[in-house]
């Protein structure tokens, strides 16, 4: 592992400040999908990005947004590479990211089970609107691949839950 230069650290922070195209309250850094920025030539950088889900269509918009931000910062050549390994997990979402998800009305993911696979659903998921823990699963799949649909039994509002991966 080579220590990033000051410029690389600056470019990483810039790329990390790009909002997620599906969940614009979160930045890519908070989502934990940026794997690194490397200067491969004086005017050329390589950005490594990992998808949340293999088929996540947002990855193309993320790449385009990163390219634009770094171009605007004076980097003529930007190559965004998609890497799969090690696989992204919801544990990569930062604490600040989790706080923002709740504020946005999405219940954040719980910590994943060490053995992999879906975690037991009996752990409490709190309603992002009223804070009640009395919530039930409506559907394991929701508006995007990364979310499940739940309903709060106290305030009766449906809400998305960023499901554990």
């Amino acid at each position: 592992m080579v220590t990033p230069t000051a410029l690389e650290a600056e470019l990483l922070a810039l790329a990390g400040s790009v909002p997620d195209p599906e969940l614009p309250v979160l930045t890519l850094a908070e989502l934990g999908v940026l794997r690194g920025v490397r200067l491969t030539a004086p005017d050329r950088v390589e950005v490594r990005l990992t998808p949340t889900y293999t088929g996540c269509p947002a990855i193309e918009a993320m790449s385009a947004d990163i390219e634009r931000v770094l171009h605007d910062h004076g980097i003529p050549e930007v190559e965004v590479r998609t890497v799969l390994s090690p696989p992204w997990t919801t544990d990569a979402i930062t604490d600040e990211g989790r706080r923002k998800l709740t504020e946005f009305g999405i219940a954040p993911p719980r910590p994943t089970a060490p053995a992999g696979g879906p975690v037991a659903v009996d752990l409490t998921i709190r309603c992002p609107h009223c804070g009640s823990t009395d919530t039930t699963l409506l559907s394991r799949f929701s508006s995007t691949a990364c979310k499940a649909l739940r309903r709060c039994e106290s305030c009766r509002e449906p809400f998305d839950h960023f499901k554990e991966l």
Binding site: Y53, T54, V83, L84, S85, W88, G116, G117, A145
Partner: peptide, 10 residues
């Protein structure tokens, strides 16, 4: 292996 490790969770 990288794809399998990623996809097995899905």
């Amino acid at each position: 292996a990288p794809l399998a490790a990623k996809a097995v969770k899905e």
